[in-house]
Design a protein around this nucleic acid. Sequence first.
DNA 1: GATTTATTCATACGTTCGTTTCATTCAAGC
DNA 2: GCTTGAATGAAACGAACGTATGAATAAATC
Lengths: 209, 209
Amino acid sequence: MATPDTRTQILDAAERLFAEHGYRGTSVRAITTLAGANLAAVGYHFGSKAELMAAVARRVVEPLNAAQCARLDEALARTPDPLVSDLVEAFVGPLFDEMRAGEEGGARTSRLIVMILSDPAEEVRGWTGPREDAVGERYLAAFARALPGLSPEELRFRMRGILAVTAVDRLGTHQRPVPGCTPPVGGEAARQWAITFLTAAMSAPPTRT
Amino acid sequence: MATPDTRTQILDAAERLFAEHGYRGTSVRAITTLAGANLAAVGYHFGSKAELMAAVARRVVEPLNAAQCARLDEALARTPDPLVSDLVEAFVGPLFDEMRAGEEGGARTSRLIVMILSDPAEEVRGWTGPREDAVGERYLAAFARALPGLSPEELRFRMRGILAVTAVDRLGTHQRPVPGCTPPVGGEAARQWAITFLTAAMSAPPTRT
DNA sequence: GATTTATTCATACGTTCGTTTCATTCAAGC
DNA sequence: GCTTGAATGAAACGAACGTATGAATAAATC
C-alpha cells in the first residue's frame, strides 16, 4: 500500500474532522496533525482553510451527484415515466451506497453531508457549482411527471423532505444513544426502510387547499 | 413596554445569534453587544457560554415539548387509539405554531432547533433533561399501537423521519434560494403539506424483509 | 555536480476568543 | 447616613486560531 501524498492525507483528515466537529470546530492544526503533515501544508496545497473545505466538499459530493444522475438516466432509459418508487430509489440509493463502502467511512460521509447542508458558516456552502442544482431539477421534473396534480410548491416541499430523511437518518452519532435500540442501523435495512417511507410520502395525494 | 432585564436581553440576543451563526460561530462579545450589555454579564448571569447555550435551549424546547405532550393527551382523551394522522398532527403541530408566532421569530426558532439537533459541539447537546426523551417515548408507544406489525426498529426509523422533515423544512434560510419558487413557504400551507407527507409516510405498510 | 523547482519545516505575527479580576454604581434595609 | 448586596462596567489574561515567512530539504533537469 503506497503512502498517499500529503495533499490526499490532508483531504482525508479534514473530511473526517469536519464531519465529526464541524467547520468551525476543526482547527487547521488538528487537521495537519492527524494527517502527519506540517501546519503550513494547508496553506501551500489549498490556500486557506475555506478552500480546503471546498475541496473536501467537492470530493464527497461530486461522485454522489454523478451516481444520482446515472441512476436517473437508467430509469428513464427503461421507461419515459418511471414509478415514484424507482425515482426515490434512484435518488437515495447512491447515498446508501456510499455508506456501505468502508463500513465506518460511510457514516462519516453522510455526517459530512449533513454538516455541509446545515452548517451556518458561509465558507461551508460557498463551494458549490451549477452541477448540484441541475441534478435536483432533473429529479424535480421526473417527479412532476409521475405525480400530476401536485403543485410545484408542494412538490418542492416533498423533495426537501427526501433530502431531510436520507440525510438525518445517519445523523444518529450526534444524537444521544437510544436505550434499548441499536442506533447504528444496518445499512441495507435502513435503505429499504427509507425507500418505503419516502415512496409512500411522495405518493400521497395532493393536499386539498 | 417595560425594558426587560439584562438576563432576558442576553437570552434573546443569544437565541438569535446562535440560530443564525451556530454555537461556535457566535462570540460572547457579539451577544453582549447585541443585548446592549457588558461583556462580563454572560459570566455573571450564566457562568459560561456553554451554560448560556443550555439556558437558551431550555427556554426554546421546554414549551415545545409541553405542547406536544398536551396535544397527545387531548388525542388520547378522545380515543385510546388515535389515527396516525392525529398523532402526526399532535407531534408536528406545536413546531408550526411556534413558527407563526412572531412572523420572523418563528423561522428563527426552528433554525435554532435544527442547530441544536445538528451542531457537533457537545456543549449544544449537553443541556437536555429526561423530559425530552419521555415525550418521544410516549409518541413511540402511541404510534406502535396505531401501526401494528411494524418492527420497533423500523418505527424508530420513521419517527426520526418525522423529526427530520419538520426540522429541515424550515432550514431554507441556510440553503441557496431556489430560483423561481418562493422559498419562505407560507406557514399554514407548509403545516398541511407536512401532515400529508408524514401521515402517508408513517402509514406505509411495513417493509418486507 | 550545479541549478532549479517543488515541498516541507520551524517559527512567528496579529487577531479573536472565553474567562477573570476588581473597581464602581445603585437600590434597598436598618 | 451607613452598610450590605446585587449588578454593571472597564480592562486585562492566557490560550487558540488562521495565516504568512523564510530557511531547509528533496527531487528532477541539465
